[in-house]
Design a protein around this nucleic acid. Structure first.
Lengths: 131, 131
DNA sequence: CTGTATCCTTAGGGATACTG
DNA sequence: CAGTATCCCTAAGGATACAG
């Protein structure tokens, strides 16, 4: 950790180029498997993805289990600590929505985010809980 | 830009180890000058600080002007686009507050953040506007 | 399918000297 | 005071082959 500042603390967990994109895939894209993360359009290398999954799991932000039927699959999901990052992501999306041109988010979702962040966060949480 | 995703977009602006700490100093520490940023406890090198200030200004997140009296001083401040990052910072602080041990934020401020984020954001904004 | 292992390249960054 | 300019080094990352 670089300092005891809470911003600095948070950056130690996801202040790199890839961690937050993996979390995004878990929260908004419904992804759970190695290959799914790998196929995201930003194109993460397998070794980098592997190291990020390890780091996020060691940090208590995600957890994994071997997939019930096919033992060759491993499933990742967010812990409570990881789910608590949803508001951060939502605020980042709201900010980008305001300034990014040619935005890649559904307008409907965006206006919800802008107007009622708490409800959006709750909706995403309950959707993830159902899985 | 790595993709048209809003998270990816935001990360292009402040998804590195230093940018958000500079913004933190502007928002919460009342800092405005090169030397003040440099003296933050994380210890940023002058060349890195210089490049970050340039990048943030080019991105429209901060703006600068030569200090009225002493022309040897240059003052930095947040633009509207930069001020709109406050909610992101506040959510990051709220998250860290929940999980960081030995936290370096005043408890009073923390409980406010946890309970009424909007009011906190508004308070910080108006405080910055007074300067 | 889920990763490791390896190789190689580059960008980021620390230290420090120096300039207007 | 507010930066530039270097030098050097390391960690991060990409490509790709391969293993369980």
């Amino acid at each position: 950790m670089r300092s005891d500042c809470p911003i600095s603390y948070a950056l130690d967990f996801f202040g790199d180029k890839w961690s937050l994109l993996v979390i995004r895939d878990l929260v908004f894209e419904g992804k759970s498997f190695f290959k799914e993360f790998q196929q995201s359009k930003e194109g993460i290398a397998t070794n980098i993805l592997s190291s990020r999954l390890k780091k996020l799991e060691a940090s208590g932000i995600i957890e994994s289990r071997v997939y019930p039927q096919l033992k060759t699959k491993k499933e990742y999901k967010l812990t409570a600590k990881g789910l608590d990052l949803i508001p951060v992501l939502v605020e980042m999306i709201a900010w980008s929505a305001k300034y990014q041109e040619g935005l890649a988010v559904k307008d409907n979702f965006l206006s919800k985010v802008a107007n009622d962040r708490e409800a959006v966060v709750a909706a995403i949480r309950s959707k993830l809980a159902d899985q």
